[in-house]
Amino acid sequence: MAEKKVIDARGSFCPGPLMELIGWIKLADIGDELELLSSDKGSAEDVPEWVKKVGHEYLGSREEAGVWHIMVKKTK
């Protein structure tokens, strides 16, 4: 059964949040959803680009009080 994992990368600067996400994606199963929390604005723009480039599914982002919640589904 697909799981949802929250990755807290708040406080880290680029490319820290991306590296944390990738580390967890490697451990996840196909179909799992990951929610990355990042306070780095650059990462909020960069991470979706990476997700689309490598072929996972970008489920969307939202900002709440200076924290970006970036949702990703592992597809391969």
Binding site: P15, L18, M19, I22, D46, W50, K53, V54
Partner: peptide, 8 residues
């Protein structure tokens, strides 16, 4: 290096 490599 890191971003380049993880981007394939």
């Amino acid at each position: 290096a890191s971003v380049g490599a993880v981007s394939g």
